[in-house]
Design a protein around this nucleic acid. Structure first.
Length: 205
DNA sequence: CTCTCGATGCACT
DNA sequence: GTGCATCGAGAGA
């Protein structure tokens, strides 16, 4: 499996968010391969995006969002969970794509152990869940996703003729007018369960 | 099935 | 001290 090149991430963050759908998230831990197919993403910008961690100045936490494209930006939230982003931007000073859901492909037994569940649709159906399934913590923060290693993103053989949907981003209160969440329609059952109101906001791209 | 609510650590004001 | 880019349990329908 060949990692996506740096140039893939050196484009408009919203475009990268759409194009990451269907790609393979690859994690090597203790010589074991864990692979998931990305089915839900969200774009986060810089000073143009009040919902982004990079809306204000560069700090210790958000520094990776201001750095090289194609790296893992991982943060800890709600006292319990890690969330995984891929840094991506064109002309703005910062930007990243949050990986919100994945469909388990390989190493499913290990993922089930990591998640303490045997329910397939409960392994990667949420940003905090998929990091737990893949044993991703702040130790992987700033890891290079363009190099074969402990964490990277690879092209998939799947032809991308899937229907793509979009909506407002989940769990934020600012900039709800931006429809920067993207997902593969037929994999909605793998995405996080949404409130009825959020589901009604979803439209076709 | 749906919705509400509390846990929990830490960055930032 | 305040506010989260969340999750799972529990209650109600």
């Amino acid at each position: 499996m060949k990692p996506l090149g740096r140039q893939f991430y050196c484009r408009d963050t919203v475009e990268v968010a759409k194009d990451l759908l269907g790609k393979l998230l690859v994690r090597e831990v203790n010589g074991r391969m864990l692979v998931g197919r990305i089915v839900e993403t969200e774009a986060y910008g810089a000073h143009n995006d009040p919902a982004s961690h990079a809306y204000r100045k560069k700090t210790d936490r958000n520094a990776v969002m201001f750095g090289e494209q194609g790296r893992a930006y991982i943060y800890f939230t709600y006292g319990n969970h890690f969330c995984l982003n891929a840094t991506a931007r064109d002309n703005l000073p910062a930007g990243a794509v949050l990986i919100r859901a994945m469909q388990p492909i390989e190493g499913i037994g290990s993922m089930m152990q990591n998640r303490k569940t045997s329910v397939l649709t409960n392994i990667g159906s949420g940003p905090g869940k998929l990091t737990q399934a893949l044993k991703i913590t702040r130790e992987q923060n700033s890891a290079d996703l363009c190099t074969k290693g402990e964490l990277y993103i690879a092209r998939s053989n799947d032809k991308m003729n899937s229907k793509i949907g979009k909506s407002s981003r989940i769990g934020i209160v600012r900039a709800v007018d931006k429809k920067w969440r993207f997902f593969i329609e037929e994999n909605l059952h793998v995405s996080r369960k949404l409130k009825t109101n959020d589901r009604n906001q979803q439209v076709r791209v």
